[in-house]
Amino acid sequence: MSPTLQSGYHRPRMLRHVGRFSPVRIQSMHYQSGRHIRLLLQPGRSLYDALVRPLQAIGVTSASTTILGGHFDHLEYCVAPPDPSGKAVIAYSSPIDAGASFMVFGNATLGKDMEGRPLVHCHASVRVEDGSVKGGHIVPQASIIGATPISVLVTALEGFELRQAFDDETNIPLLKPFKES
């Protein structure tokens, strides 16, 4: 358990990243309106397929989504400890097997990876098979929707797209907004 601090001299900690500091700190794009979709994640599909395929079918390739609560037959997640190799300040752990789980709440971003394929970046809080509540980076290809469809509110992004691009400062590929190619 982390300590609860009442008072005392303290300041937020910064980290020195591996690459060159970028002067642009907030990369932001907007569109005149959002397009909203209610999506039902289908039982037996991976989270990746259940999110990507139905949205692809209606022409949505960049989106922010809110995943409402629901059961997973199987779920895997990663945590993000310091990177022992030093290539970046942190690196994802090996996947942790949460077993049959209940996703309490999640957010997932849909974009494109560096090869142009659909990419899902999902963080969620989850009640894992042993009953404890955990949280982390969900492995979408390895997490399988349970017997009941799960509702998702999709805010489709139009007028720009999300693409994974190598980020010099952090030395890892990251999703960023770009004008549509």
């Binding site: 700190r25 794009m29 907004p177």
Partner: peptide, 23 residues
């Protein structure tokens, strides 16, 4: 009513709350 939609990537060492405000 809802208006525009914006997406941002906030860079390292920026504060989450103030980053959203600056966005």
């Amino acid at each position: 009513r809802m208006g525009r939609v914006a997406y941002a990537r906030i860079a390292p060492n920026e504060d989450l709350v103030q980053g959203v405000e600056k966005m």
